[in-house]
Design a protein around this nucleic acid. Structure first.
Lengths: 224, 224
DNA sequence: CACAGATTCTACCGCATGTTTAAATAAATA
DNA sequence: TATTTATTTAAACATGCGGTAGAATCTGTG
């Protein structure tokens, strides 16, 4: 039962002076307690920056000051981390939009609020949102289908708001609601690609620009 | 100079009956001639569908009916395939937009054409565009910086068109040109995420909807 | 047909990665 | 303190991947 002989004999387990690790850990401030929450949060950052496939569990462990083995006490496997990130995004985005869609206010106001809501999610949860829209190809099986369905339902709410506006004669009749919904969603989603906190504008201001754009457009009407 | 002893002794080179492969190849129609072009085109499809990291050279070879070894006669390595995809996108998008930006026409017309151009690229080169905006994290070194710079220059052209419209008093004064440019670009870029050929609308029609949205918005002004 | 160059295949290497296991340690409890 | 439970480590594993080298095959040309 010979072991495979590799070329580079790694430094054999020379029982390195134990507890030299503890020193390192203590010095980098109070170590954050490991949990699903911090794992998926850290993982979302890394996935957003380097991609799901290019981020190893070693990377995640290193970012947390822990060996990758420790991660397995809190999560089932790598894909579950991804799944949890997707669930996080849906958890903060679905219900508020549903409430906006069924509120009893003019369609233009609904659109305003929907844009504000979605922009806020895209900006505040930027890493998770980037993962949500870039790494969906790595989901498999029933969960992948569920995410796709809920994503579509979410988009459909935007569509319905626009349909309502058209039906009530408040929105232009010559624009396809599905295309318009995709356009507006694309506008907001793109936020997560370029927005970084602490820049010139905050998410609310950006959302207000987007609302102006979506409602009235850029071109100055000769009003009156 | 012993080789490493592995556990599973692969079936030794038992010289399998040669030329059983040729039959397979002949039957699947006339085989496409291998070249950089078809490699990057096929790779773009696979990268777009499964991601760069999750697509192996074996996958690309299999899609082309060829072993991965053959690929290396035409390309240097995997990253070069990615680079060539990026170059393709820039090759078809940069120059036309520059011409639109410097044309002597009203800013609104420039914006129209820019949106039509960018939408067309996003729709027609959908796989390459998806790769362009999703897999940039896998570029390294000077090339990564060059792509980032040219991407920014491209966005800047949209921004300048809007600035011109504002300066000439033809666009609303209360919208930040940079934010508006990002919004419009996001709208178009998102196309490559959902557009599939042969659906209800073609790229020109979609672009026209987007132009309406960006210029006049959704809300019906009480004109008169 | 003979030859040369172009192209592809086969077989392999080294390495990184996701996952598992048992042992070691830390924290909680009594 | 003694014992149990929770958490982390260390080490190994199986696998798949990017990349390489040389043999094999194809293609065109004299």
């Amino acid at each position: 039962m010979e072991k495979a002989i590799t070329l580079s004999e790694k430094a054999p387990p020379a029982k390195p002076a134990r507890s030299n690790r503890k020193v390192e850990n203590r010095e980098d401030k109070t170590r954050v307690r490991l949990s699903q929450q911090v794992i998926i949060s850290t993982a979302a950052d890394l996935f957003a920056r380097n991609g799901f496939g290019a981020t190893s569990l070693d990377d995640i462990g290193e970012a947390l000051g822990v060996t990758k083995g420790a991660l397995y006490y809190h999560i089932k496997n790598k894909e579950e981390i991804l799944k949890l990130i997707f669930m996080t995004v849906l958890a903060v985005s679905e219900e508020p939009l549903r409430q906006i869609a069924r509120a009893e206010i003019p369609p233009a106001d609904k659109l305003n609020r929907a844009i504000a809501h979605h922009s806020a999610v895209a900006a505040d949860r930027s890493p998770a949102m980037q993962v949500f829209y870039r790494e969906d190809v790595h989901l498999t099986g029933p969960f992948a289908r569920e995410i796709a369905a809920r994503k579509k339902a979410y988009e459909r709410l935007f569509e319905e708001i626009i349909e309502e506006g058209i039906r009530l004669g408040q929105f232009r009749q010559d624009i396809d609601p599905k295309i318009a919904a995709f356009g507006i969603l694309g506008m907001c989603n793109w936020l997560s690609q370029w927005y970084r906190p602490g820049r010139a504008y905050n998410p609310q201001q950006i959302a207000s620009f987007f609302s102006q754009l979506a409602e009235f457009g850029l071109v100055l009407q000769d009003e009156k």
